[in-house]
Design a protein around this nucleic acid. Structure first.
Lengths: 209, 209
DNA sequence: GAAAGAATATGACCTTAATCATATTTACGC
DNA sequence: GCGTAAATATGATTAAGGTCATATTCTTTC
C-alpha cells in the first residue's frame, strides 16, 4: 500500500526547496481536483510541486482534456508566462492532494538573475520539456495507437525505473488517452492487445511492464 | 517577384551577428536540400540562420517528414543538445539555399555564461518554441483537419503580417501536411473547402488570407 | 463485507481521413 | 515559347479509430 511510487520524473528538483524559501516562497496545500491556475490567465507566481501530482492540461469545448505535462514531485510548472509575459498556455489541476511551493513573480525574476546555475536549470528544464514535445508530436503525427502507447510506456519506464525490473503504470487508461490524443476505448483495446501478445502484463486491470 | 517575403518569425534574431562573430562564429553556405545535422547525431556546433530557410524535421521509416520547426532568418536551431548533452532531436535540412552562422560548442557555452541577456534570450526562445508545441499538440490531438489548418494559418499570419492585410502563404500543401500530420490530399481538399466558403483565397494554386 | 463509484472491458456500427490512381495546372530552365 | 518537373486537384475505395451502449471488474468507504 505505502510502496514507493515509481514516478515519471522528467526533471530533477528544479530549484532546491530551501533556496526557494529563502526567496520568500510559501507552501500551499491543494486538494485533488483543485485548479491551481487557468489557461489564458495572467501569471503572478512561480510554482513548484513538493508533494503529490499535478496535471497540466488543455481543456476543449466538450470538456475533453489533453495532458501536456504530468508534473511530478520536485518539478516546476507554469513557468512559461514568467519568461515571456504571455498568458498561461494550459490549466494546472491537482491530480491528487498536493503541496506546492509558490514564489511571487518579481522575486522569481530576482532569483533567476542572481544565479547562473538556477537560470541554467530552467533552461535545461525547458530543453527537456521541448525534447519531450518533439517526441510526442512525431508520435502523434505519424504513428498508430499501438506505437504511440508503446513509446509513451517506454519513455515512462526510462524515467521511472532503474534497470529493467517490472514497473507498475501509474496512469489510468483515460489519462493515457488524454496524453496521446486517443479515446479510452482505443487505449483499453490496444493495451489488451499488447497484453495478449506478451508485450506487457495486466493484473487486476493494472499495467505492468 | 522580389517582394519581401512575409516570413514566419517565431523569435527575433536570437543572438546579434557581430556578437557571434566576436566569439568566433563562421559563415557557412548550404544548398537547398543539404542536411546540416542529423537526428540522433552528436552536437558540436551552435547554428543560427542568416539567410534562407531551414526545416527541422523528423523522418520516419517510410521517408515521411514531420516538420517540427520552420526556421526563419535570424533564428537559432539545433540548440537542444548544447544544453542537455543529448543527441539531436531532429534533422535540419536547408529548405532553400541558405547561409548559416556556426559557433563551436565550447565557445557557445562561454558566450551564454558571459551574458545574462544572451542566456535569457535563449530561455525566451525555448519558451516560445515550447508554447508553439503546446499549441500544435492540442490541435493535432483534438481537432479535425480544418481546425488544425485554420489555426496554423492564423498563427502564421500573426507572426508574419502587420495589421490584417492579405498574406501569401509561403508553404506548399505538402509542407502544411508535414506540419500538421495530415496527408497532402487532405490538406488540398480542406484548403479548397475553406476557399469555397470564403475563408481564404486561392489564386493560381497559391493561398492568400 | 455490502454498496457505490471508478475504471476496465467488449461488441456493433459509423465516420473520417488515408490510400491509390490519375488528371490538370503552375513554375522553371533553356 | 517549349518541355519537364513540381505542385495542385479530384474521384473512388478502404481501413482505422471513434462513438455509443452496456457489462464486468476493481477499489474505496462506511
Amino acid at each position: 500500500m505505502s510502496q514507493k511510487k515509481p514516478y515519471m520524473t522528467i526533471a530533477k528538483p528544479t530549484v532546491e526547496e530551501d533556496i526557494l524559501l529563502s526567496w520568500g516562497a510559501a507552501y500551499k496545500k491543494v486538494n485533488k481536483g483543485d485548479i491551481i491556475f487557468m489557461e489564458g490567465g495572467q501569471s503572478c507566481f512561480y510554482y513548484q510541486l513538493v508533494k503529490g501530482r499535478v496535471r497540466w492540461v488543455n481543456i476543449n469545448e466538450d470538456g475533453r482534456e489533453f495532458i501536456q505535462v504530468m508534473i511530478e514531485e520536485g518539478e516546476s510548472f507554469g513557468e512559461l508566462p514568467l519568461f515571456d509575459e504571455m498568458p498561461y498556455a494550459a490549466t494546472a489541476i491537482a491530480d491528487e492532494d498536493s503541496i506546492v511551493l509558490r514564489l511571487c513573480k518579481s522575486h522569481f525574476h530576482q532569483m533567476v538573475r542572481s544565479s547562473y546555475d538556477i537560470h541554467f536549470n530552467f533552461t535545461r528544464l525547458l530543453v527537456e520539456r521541448l525534447r519531450f514535445k518533439f517526441l510526442t508530436l512525431k508520435e502523434i503525427a505519424y504513428n498508430n495507437p499501438e506505437q504511440r502507447i508503446s513509446n509513451l510506456l517506454r519513455y515512462y519506464k526510462r524515467n521511472t525505473s532503474i534497470g529493467d525490473k517490472l514497473v507498475k503504470l501509474q496512469y489510468t487508461r483515460q489519462q493515457i488517452a488524454d496524453m496521446t490524443g486517443l479515446r479510452v476505448e482505443t487505449v483499453i483495446r490496444t493495451i489488451r492487445n499488447l497484453h495478449e501478445r506478451g508485450a506487457l502484463k495486466i493484473q487486476r486491470g493494472k499495467v505492468f511492464f
